[in-house]
Design a protein around this nucleic acid. Structure first.
Length: 410
RNA sequence: GGGCAGUUACCAAAGUGGACAAAUGGGACUGACUGUAAAUCAGUUGCGUAAGCUUCGAAGGUUCGAAUCCUCCACUGCCCA
């Protein structure tokens, strides 16, 4: 049900918060006020069925969809089961294998399970590209290609970069934006969301719709959050991500390890804290009356609350302070059953704390391994000799590196 | 279709017959410092306790000896048509 007359504040929130670009803001503002002839807007999101472990970066866009839903608009999800076959547009060399229908079904399910943690499934339609593209023939495909020129395709940032630096671009990849654009036609999309990396693809949808007699969709792109390195886009391939389903404690720790400069974007993308308050944080940090650490603790708490709940966030914070501020042992050390006394190096490797004997020895040499013979209450002893034998002492804790621990069990 | 260039460790990139498990930079890891960080400093980064073993796109070959030379194959880029 379309919400009657949303406030300017609500609309601004949708149009501004965490947003990189709105194509034709005035038009979108009008749509948000009036709907599409009084009907809820169809807000589209394309989904790639090859991912299953979603990151909190994906959630940035999901949260924006949720904001639309709160005004009564409809979410329209397209599972990209056709484009997934075309090869990765992010610059990987290998073309992807076609996924079987079963794989698509399975991947989509795990995707949607995570998606619906944030987005309301009641207000969501789910479609697959194969619904319309299975009916496509060569003529349709070529016709689609005819709507764009090579020069236009090369406007896309990653294409032009790759072209200039001599990295291959498969022709099939040119289909990608076109198919994705055609999805908007097939779904009669009013608005499409995506990350800034999707800008070009979303614009293609905008261009195609009038050709098929539809009004152009509005597009809204979100600032993507950077990954744990603080520089690059969060993503699985860079291994700098926080999983949406990460345990609260883990999520908290990772959030705290983010560089200070990323805080504002994270606040804007993943929390509902007012801009005014965020401005005040910035001001006070600049004048030195507020410790950035405390702001980051707040940030981590807010975000963990979004994905879990306030209680889990609080526990995450306590565990974090305990382990890293106070440098005490963590509370949830996994048990490791030790049948007989064993050499440290072997123990470290068989417990999976190092990849090889060499690596384990290296850690020992570097002073990264200590033993708490009496558990957390006792003193720790740094192990410096790789020939040390670890006795079976029930409850003893072995610390390997900064954050790996095992508790020895008889 | 023709010509030229290239393929080296997680990534980038040197190496062009022996001193190469392979320079350098990034990343990662460990320690110190710290706010949890950033910055900085020190160290490590194929496997093996070691002797040694397996690596430089693939396979063969030349050589006492090959990342380096030859043959062939695969892949990529550029130029010409």
């Amino acid at each position: 049900m379309l919400k009657q007359s949303p406030t300017n504040k609500e609309i601004d929130h949708i149009l501004k918060r965490g947003v990189a670009l709105v194509e034709k803001e005035a038009d979108l503002r009008r749509l948000l006020l009036e709907g599409n002839k009084g009907e809820p807007l169809r807000v589209k999101l394309g989904v790639d069925p090859t991912h299953y472990d979603l990151t909190i970066g994906h959630a940035v866009v999901f949260r924006k969809l949720r904001q639309f839903q709160k005004l009564g608009h409809k979410t329209v999800v397209v599972i990209g089961d056709w484009t997934a076959r075309l090869g990765d547009p992010s610059g990987r060399v290998e073309a992807r294998k076609a996924l079987s229908a079963e794989q698509v079904a399975e991947n989509s399910k795990t995707y949607l399970d995570q998606f619906f943690r944030i987005v309301d499934s009641e207000q969501t339609e789910v479609h697959r590209q194969t619904e319309w593209f299975d009916k496509f023939d060569l003529g349709d495909a070529i016709k689609l290609l005819g709507y764009k020129t090579v020069a236009q395709m090369l406007e896309r940032d990653d294409f032009s970069k790759r072209y200039k630096s001599g990295i291959e671009i498969s022709l099939a990849e040119f289909m990608y934006p076109l198919l994705q654009g055609y999805d908007s036609v097939a779904l009669r999309s009013d608005v499409e969301l995506g990350g800034t990396d999707q800008t070009f693809n979303l614009l293609v949808g905008r261009d195609l719709q009038p050709i098929f007699g539809q009004a152009s969709q509005q597009i809204l792109t979100m600032n993507l959050i950077v990954g744990l390195d603080g520089e690059k886009k969060m993503g699985k391939s860079l291994d700098n991500y926080i999983s949406m389903t990460a345990p609260a404690k883990d999520m908290f720790g990772k959030l705290m390890s983010l560089p200070d400069k990323t805080m504002r974007t994270y606040f804007e993308a993943l929390t509902e804290i007012d801009e005014e308050e965020l401005d005040e944080f910035d001001r006070k940090m600049a004048e030195g009356t507020l410790n950035p650490r405390d702001v980051k603790l707040r940030m981590a708490r807010e975000i963990v609350t979004e994905f879990h709940n306030a209680e889990a966030a609080q526990e995450g914070q306590e565990a974090f302070i305990r382990q890293f501020s106070e440098r005490k042992l963590p509370t949830d050390i996994p048990d490791y059953h030790l049948a007989a006394s064993q050499n440290v190096v072997e123990l470290i490797v068989s417990a999976g704390l190092a990849a090889s004997n060499n690596k384990a020895r290296e850690l020992i040499k570097q002073g990264g391994v200590s033993l708490f013979a009496r558990g957390e209450s006792g003193e720790s002893e740094r192990i410096t000799d790789p020939n040390t034998t670890i006795e079976v002492i029930d409850g003893a804790i072995l610390k390997v590196g900064k954050r790996q621990h095992i508790r020895i069990k008889a």
